[in-house]
Amino acid sequence: MAAPAPTPAGYTIEKLTRADLPRLSEIGQAAFEHDTHTRMKMHEKGVTDLGSELEPVEYLEHLLSDPAVQMIKIVDSSGKMVGYSNWRLSKPRDPDPSVPPLDAPVSHPDHPVRASDPPLEQMRNITSGHMNGLAARANATTQSFFCTGISVDPATQARGAGSAMIGWAAAQADRYGARSWVHLSDHAGGVRAFEKHGYKVVNAVTVDLDAYATKAHEGKKWGSYTFRFLVREPQPQGKALPQTSEE
């Protein structure tokens, strides 16, 4: 078993295990506690359990057994898990010139936006169509190493944990010679962390949350929310990749 991988920020990157799933859920809920997109959906549905909006444990357990998925955690000097990140490696593809470029407008046949649908469903199809449409383009023309989830405990944010995990993923993508991408929630700090490691925003969609809200919200406005699609092409001279434990 390889030793855990130290990072420049003083954290350690290790392979995530089933025993870490409760802590993963804690971090995910803390990270999205004040996310307006998540909160607006919960308000419209009339639910109060933030965990209901996150990935269920059964799905995470499935990911742990998927050989195409790499799930990592980042641990501080006290041994506490302060963040996690999940990445999937797609199959190699031959370039397909018929696929639209990543910066072209997006629509997805599985997510039609119909005026007859409930407002929340319309919004979901806009955002899900944006992600799935761009994912299909990005994965259709090359091999990709893409993010399916990343969160850092808010108490540890802006201290290098997220950047360390992104740097690990960028180096892994370079090892594979793969394009790397992420469909990122509206968080300026997250965008900057990815850009630091060579990711670039190539497409974005902004939704006016209030346009899809049907219930009063304490007299307040939800505001707008943006999802960004960031891409990093493989670098021939990528940084050396630290090994996770049990890799």
Results as ranks from 00 to 15, higher is better:
residue 150 I to K: 02
residue 163 S to Q: 09
residue 5 A to V: 01
residue 28 G to K: 04
residue 16 L to A: 15
residue 209 L to G: 05
residue 163 S to Y: 00
residue 129 G to N: 02
residue 26 E to W: 04
residue 224 S to R: 05
residue 189 G to E: 12
residue 92 P to R: 08
residue 219 G to Q: 09
residue 84 Y to G: 09
residue 207 V to P: 06
residue 130 H to V: 01
residue 228 R to T: 10
residue 84 Y to W: 12
residue 47 V to G: 01
residue 37 H to G: 07
residue 123 M to K: 09
residue 211 A to N: 06
residue 66 D to M: 03
residue 103 D to N: 13
residue 189 G to T: 11
residue 36 T to M: 07
residue 241 L to G: 14
residue 157 Q to I: 01
residue 39 R to V: 02
residue 244 T to L: 10
residue 222 W to S: 04
residue 20 D to Q: 01
residue 45 K to G: 01
residue 76 D to S: 01
residue 193 A to T: 13
residue 68 A to F: 10
residue 93 R to A: 15
residue 127 T to Q: 14
residue 201 V to Y: 02
residue 64 L to W: 03
residue 20 D to W: 11
residue 109 P to W: 03
residue 95 P to V: 03
residue 236 P to R: 00
residue 241 L to H: 05
residue 108 H to G: 04
residue 230 L to G: 08
residue 16 L to K: 08
residue 199 Y to A: 00
residue 30 A to P: 12
residue 189 G to P: 03
residue 180 S to H: 05
residue 91 K to C: 02
residue 44 E to M: 11
residue 15 K to H: 06
residue 117 D to E: 06
residue 42 M to G: 14
residue 238 G to F: 00
residue 224 S to E: 12
residue 226 T to F: 08
residue 112 P to G: 04
residue 60 L to G: 05
residue 62 H to P: 00
residue 233 E to Q: 06
residue 66 D to F: 13
residue 235 Q to D: 10
residue 33 E to C: 02
residue 118 P to M: 09
residue 152 V to N: 11
residue 119 P to F: 15
residue 236 P to K: 02
residue 114 R to N: 14
residue 46 G to Y: 02
residue 83 G to E: 03
residue 132 N to S: 12
residue 91 K to F: 11
residue 10 G to Y: 06
residue 54 L to P: 05
residue 152 V to I: 15
residue 129 G to R: 01
residue 26 E to N: 08
residue 113 V to H: 00
residue 45 K to F: 08
residue 2 A to D: 14
residue 176 Y to P: 10
residue 107 S to L: 07
residue 247 E to D: 10
residue 227 F to V: 08
residue 82 V to S: 05
residue 135 A to G: 11
residue 98 S to A: 10
residue 211 A to C: 03
residue 111 H to Y: 15
residue 51 G to C: 13
residue 110 D to E: 14
residue 41 K to V: 12
residue 200 K to D: 05
residue 4 P to A: 09
residue 214 T to V: 12
residue 244 T to H: 06
residue 107 S to K: 13
residue 105 P to L: 10
residue 107 S to Q: 14
residue 182 V to F: 14
residue 58 E to G: 05
